[in-house]
Simulated assay, not measured.
Amino acid sequence: MDATIHKFRDASGREDRPSRTEAEDAVRTLLRYIGEDEMREGLVDTPARVVKAYDEMFAGYDQDPEQILGRTFEDVSGYRDMVLIRDIVFHSHCEHHMVPIHGRAHIAYLPDGKVLGLSKIARLVDAFAHRLQTQESMTAQIADQIQGVLKPQGVAVMIEAEHMCMVMRGIRREGSDTVTTAFTGTFSDEVAERARFFDLIRTGSGR
């Protein structure tokens, strides 16, 4: 990517982004703000490295979740029971402090004549994770996207994550996980299906 303005459409509908040069200058400003000399040997190339890292860590803004799910498969031999993808590891960043979130997502759906390629669900998690997030929003986004594209009988999403904003700053408590859930359709309406979802997660994780 060169120093020209890179056009894209983000979640808010904006179509402009500062140039790479402007982004690197912003990193230099932050280095000066914390009391560093941005021209010392170890930091001369840091602005470029940070911007390159941001291109990777926040690549989700350039990905269309609907296109990721893309093609569905209808030749499922009448299968209508739960499809569960467990322990999808992800890394994201908190939108409040822009520090890391590390976690695992567990996602299930009850097909209604169509199924998704299994890798597509992991890619969907990855796309939403590679944006500034709150865990609550990310959980709902995943559930809503699968429900909207696949139109299954129901979707269940559970995310367990550790937030570095609780470890590196503030109360500074390590090992505290946050758990969020989202349910649609049958999972929302039937307690037994939600219980089966949780049971299958616990069985596979040895909890």
Rank of each mutant, 00 (worst) to 15 (best):
I101P: 01
M164A: 06
A48W: 00
G35P: 11
D75T: 10
T203P: 03
R80T: 15
Q145M: 15
R104Y: 11
F73I: 13
Y109T: 02
M138R: 01
A3E: 13
E22D: 14
E66T: 10
Q147L: 03
R207T: 15
Y109N: 04
H6R: 14
H102C: 05
L118M: 14
S119G: 05
G78I: 04
H6W: 08
Y54S: 05
C94T: 01
D16A: 07
Q141E: 00
T180G: 08
E162R: 11
L116N: 03
V157P: 02
K114H: 14
R194K: 14
M39I: 00
G175R: 05
D2S: 12
S137M: 08
G42F: 11
K7R: 15
A182C: 07
R71P: 10
I101V: 13
A53L: 14
E193R: 14
M39E: 14
L132N: 09
D62V: 03
E174P: 06
Q63W: 04
D75I: 04
E66G: 03
A127D: 07
I201K: 13
D25H: 13
Q67A: 10
E162K: 13
I142Y: 07
R207A: 15
L124K: 02
Y33N: 12
T21K: 12
T139D: 06
L200G: 01
L30F: 11
I5Q: 08
T4P: 00
G170R: 10
I171L: 14
D81W: 04
E193I: 01
A127Y: 04
R86D: 15
F183D: 04
V167T: 14
V155I: 11
A48G: 15
R28L: 00
D45H: 13
S188Y: 07
E24D: 09
D64I: 03
G204I: 01
A122W: 05
G103Q: 05
M164R: 01
A3M: 06
V149Q: 02
V83H: 02
G175Y: 09
S137D: 12
D144W: 03
V115E: 08
